[in-house]
Write a protein that binds this DNA or RNA. Structure first.
Lengths: 224, 224
DNA sequence: TGACAGCCTAATGTATACAATGCCGATCGG
DNA sequence: CCGATCGGCATTGTATACATTAGGCTGTCA
């Protein structure tokens, strides 16, 4: 990630995720270029990627804006993610290797440690949660599924989900991971798929409950 | 969108689909720029889009090659498409309006005419087949599903498809469309979803049978 | 006073020059 | 003769200047 366009991509993405760039804000290439300390060329490349990931949207005349997410959009995202990730789990159950299973158990254990502590270690939870799901994607052996999911997971909602988890949510998530492992050990596609659907569904409701009567992405009360 | 990069995109895509650029061929930006009569800037943009649509693959050092599609890759594509399009059908069944239903019936009738003729009118078949599926996507009311599917389905691929369809294939496709309409009229999500899965699945096997003991020549042979 | 038109500004699209980086071959040493 | 390393060459990454186009502002006319 040493290329300028990659750095620009991460900077802009972080600005959106952190709320520095509020929903609906207009994005000028020139301004971003100056802010990121690069020229417009890598900025344009970064914007393309962000558009593909639905973090920004473009007007009919190619002006860029930070995407604003309605609750319906959020539910759509979770629906799509559940669809793709459950299919990945199904494929993974058929193909997962012994070493992949071993790795997934390692991450499972790490997550267990993270939430067994007095104060749950969210950092460690998120990190190994990503790795856990990453192994499933790898085992699914579908480059296309992997690519499509990668574009969804970068989304703000997915990113913020873990923060909204209660302690019970974290434990339930961990238990579902355990059940996924059992399904993988049995090489049972239907089981793995069902658990994954449930897993993602739960994540959605955790999110929805946390934002029950709020307008969704207004993290940024302080507009510049 | 911009004119030069769009033209470049279409030109390169057509070269790939027509086989002028064979699978695995190396793609140089400079060479393409000269061939398309534009500079490298729009070429790079076109290559990004083509990569997102899996028509181009990039090496670890960003060299571009025409993607080579194994039979497994093709099946993956059909699997993904079936997954997304059946979900679109399910959503559409719940939401489709009377006027959308009317439009879909119009296209259904047009397809019927196209294949009832002495010589099937593939042009008309493909056109209204696109519109038929387009209405379903519209009725699904999911921008994200729509966008993702747009990246999977390349129109020229669909167009090429009709040529590989036997007369019976065309008639079966038409009958399945009729069943989809029935499911929509009943607003029966499960029914619509099931028919769509079957619809896409059958298309895959039509493809597989047509290429049963051939090395996959290129993407343009993919069937719907 | 309101609406339309034309210019002006600002933003995006494209071209080109330059920088950095990977690839390949040639040459030298074992 | 084989392998490794170094250097030139080809290709991609970035910057910048220029072209084009959208959108706003203002002035004028009804």
């Amino acid at each position: 990630m040493s290329r300028a366009s990659d750095r620009a991509y991460e900077m802009i993405r972080d600005m959106i995720l952190s709320g520095d760039l509020p929903s609906g804000a207009k994005i000028g290439e020139e301004a971003l270029a100056e802010h990121c300390g690069v020229s417009r060329t890598p900025i344009r490349e970064a914007l393309s990627r962000l558009e593909a990931e639905f973090l920004i949207r473009r007007s009919d005349t190619q002006r860029s804006f930070v995407a604003d997410w309605s609750l319906e959009d959020v539910e759509e995202t979770f629906e799509l993610r559940g669809l793709l990730e459950s299919r990945a789990a199904r494929r993974a159950a058929k193909r997962i290797s012994w070493s992949q299973l071993a790795r997934i158990k390692t991450h499972h254990a790490a997550i267990g440690e993270a939430i067994d502590a007095e104060m749950p270690d969210t950092q460690q939870f998120v990190e190994h949660n990503d790795l856990f799901h990453g192994v499933i994607l790898e085992a699914s052996a579908s480059a296309q599924l992997t690519t499509m999911l990668a574009r969804i997971i970068e989304r703000p909602i997915v990113h913020r989900t873990a923060r909204n988890y209660s302690f019970d949510d974290l434990k339930r998530s961990h238990r579902q991971h355990g059940e996924l492992i059992a399904a993988f050990e049995q090489h049972d596609p239907a089981w793995a798929e069902a658990v994954m659907i449930s897993h993602i569904r739960r994540a959605f409701h955790a999110y929805a409950n946390a934002h029950i009567d709020q307008r969704i992405p207004d993290v940024s009360q302080a507009a510049e």
